[in-house]
Computed example of a mutant assay.
Amino acid sequence: MLTDQMITTIEHQRLGFLATVDEEGAPRVSPKGTFVVIDEKTIAYGDISSPGSTSRIGHDPRVEVNFVDPLRRSGLRARGKARFLEAGTSDFETEIARFERWGGLAARIKRIVVIDIGSAKPVRTPAYDDGVSEAELIQTWSSTLIG
């Protein structure tokens, strides 16, 4: 489901915007900054402080995650169903090593939210359709960064 380019985007960006559905059917979007790729059909994030997202996933496991490289103006959207790996379970202990890159923050992960991907599609700015190159976009958007 995930292409090599999509995997690269997730691994480099790590910040994904998770869309869930609340009990009234309204969409809710929440950024999650600890995404990892498990394989081409599975991604996950470490739940550190997400009681709203956790509750909504418990109500309806359907989710969509968007990742966008802000300089290249491209990324992906992945849809699927989320499930939990709770701390103290053998599945959690197997997967928690993937989160070591966050150092002490990894120790605060309460559960791992695994997303089994049903579909993944690339997203990109219409500027590419107009002939703008990736290098031009990177140059243009790099100059707008704060700092």
Score class of each variant (00 low, 15 high):
residue 52 G to E: 13
residue 51 P to N: 13
residue 21 V to N: 06
residue 77 R to A: 02
residue 11 E to Q: 04
residue 41 K to F: 09
residue 39 D to C: 14
residue 13 Q to E: 02
residue 12 H to A: 06
residue 79 R to L: 01
residue 110 K to R: 15
residue 139 Q to W: 03
residue 9 T to Y: 03
residue 71 L to G: 05
residue 84 F to P: 08
residue 127 A to E: 12
residue 123 V to F: 09
residue 27 P to F: 03
residue 24 E to Q: 00
residue 1 M to H: 06
residue 52 G to A: 14
residue 56 R to P: 07
residue 85 L to Q: 00
residue 133 S to A: 07
residue 68 V to R: 09
residue 100 E to A: 15
residue 97 A to C: 13
residue 59 H to Y: 14
residue 1 M to C: 14
residue 134 E to Y: 11
residue 133 S to E: 07
residue 6 M to C: 03
residue 19 A to I: 01
residue 146 I to Q: 15
residue 138 I to W: 06
residue 82 A to P: 05
residue 29 V to T: 13
residue 93 E to V: 06
residue 145 L to W: 03
residue 129 D to S: 06
residue 86 E to T: 04
residue 3 T to F: 01
residue 19 A to K: 01
residue 100 E to C: 04
residue 78 A to K: 06
residue 35 F to L: 02
residue 125 T to N: 05
residue 125 T to V: 11
residue 144 T to S: 14
residue 24 E to M: 13
residue 83 R to E: 14
residue 93 E to T: 11
residue 68 V to A: 08
residue 13 Q to S: 00
residue 120 A to T: 04
residue 146 I to R: 11
residue 138 I to Q: 06
residue 98 R to P: 13
residue 101 R to S: 13
residue 64 E to S: 03
residue 78 A to E: 08
residue 77 R to S: 12
residue 78 A to M: 02
residue 112 I to Q: 05
residue 89 T to I: 13
residue 76 L to R: 02
residue 128 Y to T: 09
residue 130 D to L: 12
residue 61 P to W: 01
residue 40 E to F: 10
residue 129 D to I: 04
residue 86 E to W: 15
residue 137 L to W: 10
residue 9 T to D: 02
residue 145 L to G: 04
residue 137 L to G: 05
residue 12 H to R: 08
residue 34 T to W: 14
residue 105 L to P: 03
residue 58 G to T: 00
residue 89 T to A: 03
residue 76 L to G: 01
residue 106 A to K: 11
residue 136 E to T: 08
residue 121 K to R: 06
residue 114 V to M: 04
residue 9 T to F: 02
residue 62 R to L: 15
residue 106 A to M: 10
residue 125 T to Y: 07
residue 55 S to M: 14
residue 121 K to C: 04
residue 112 I to R: 07
residue 145 L to F: 02
residue 113 V to E: 05
residue 55 S to T: 14
residue 106 A to L: 13
residue 60 D to Y: 09
residue 102 W to G: 06
residue 18 L to H: 08
residue 80 G to V: 09
residue 102 W to V: 12
residue 104 G to T: 11
residue 89 T to V: 07
residue 59 H to D: 14
residue 52 G to V: 15
residue 11 E to M: 09
residue 84 F to L: 05
residue 101 R to F: 15
residue 123 V to H: 07
residue 86 E to Y: 07
residue 117 I to Q: 05
residue 10 I to L: 01
residue 96 I to A: 01
residue 36 V to T: 12
residue 115 I to Q: 01
residue 18 L to S: 09
residue 111 R to V: 10
residue 114 V to Y: 04
residue 32 K to Y: 06
residue 44 A to E: 07
residue 8 T to I: 03
residue 20 T to C: 14
residue 53 S to Y: 10
residue 132 V to S: 02
